[in-house]
Amino acid sequence: MRVILSIASTTVGEAIRRRVLLIILLIGVLFLAVAPGLTVLSARQERTVLIGMTLGIIQLTSAVIAIVLTVYMIPNEIERRTIYTILCKPVQRWQFLVGKYLGAVAALGLMMALMTIVLVLVFALQQGVQQMDQLVLLAKAPAMFFVQMSLLAAVAIFFSTFVSPLVNFFLSGGLYLVGSLFNSFFEVISSNPNSPALAKGFATFANTILPNFANYNVQNPIINPGQIIENESIYYVRVTIYGLLYIGILLVGGIVIFDRREV
């Protein structure tokens, strides 16, 4: 375990030093800060637009960070040959992979926490600190996004064990996009009586087997507080378990592939 933590902490340090990630983070934070100026676009819906937009900024920025952070992780180590200095020590490959993943997730968590703090500050300045309960409510979505991005990072690290970073970027990004649409597409296909049975079957299969990122898009009740959610906490626990299960699948898959790979 100490080995894994050691690799993870080194990875966090590396991630924080990477300029490209810091630039993406900076852009995200800047957008969050100027977001209140764009609420004029919707009469009577300023608050709704502001929450929707800021959560969208966090989600998009986090997704880009998660992918950029992880796609280069393993290939860079191999390319620079730094992996040899690690693997020649008493470090198993699986420990290396898991350590790298945990480091990436920790770095991601730090960056998302920073963005969430900016989000809360923006709202505290605009709406006043007296509405603390709403600010806490606001932080719920980034918490779910964190699970979502951890899953995305697992997808990217899985692919990074056998494809090049560029391919991995599009593969992970594409899977994230498709995974975000799964529930909606599945809903359309299953509720349409004219959908072919084959399409319905495929949609059911895809919705069951492939990683479903849409589960973590829980903005609706936060953006529109009038909406009543049944068993909200249970839902959050379930999707977190789902995320952990899927991260487990991807890491195990990555370990199997990485173990066989010649470096």
Binding site: N212, V218, N220, E232, I234, Y235, V239, I241
Partner: peptide, 14 residues
Amino acid sequence: LQRTAIYPSWKKNF
């Protein structure tokens, strides 16, 4: 988990 617990709840609430 996805089919039996998460998706029905997501559809209803989110």
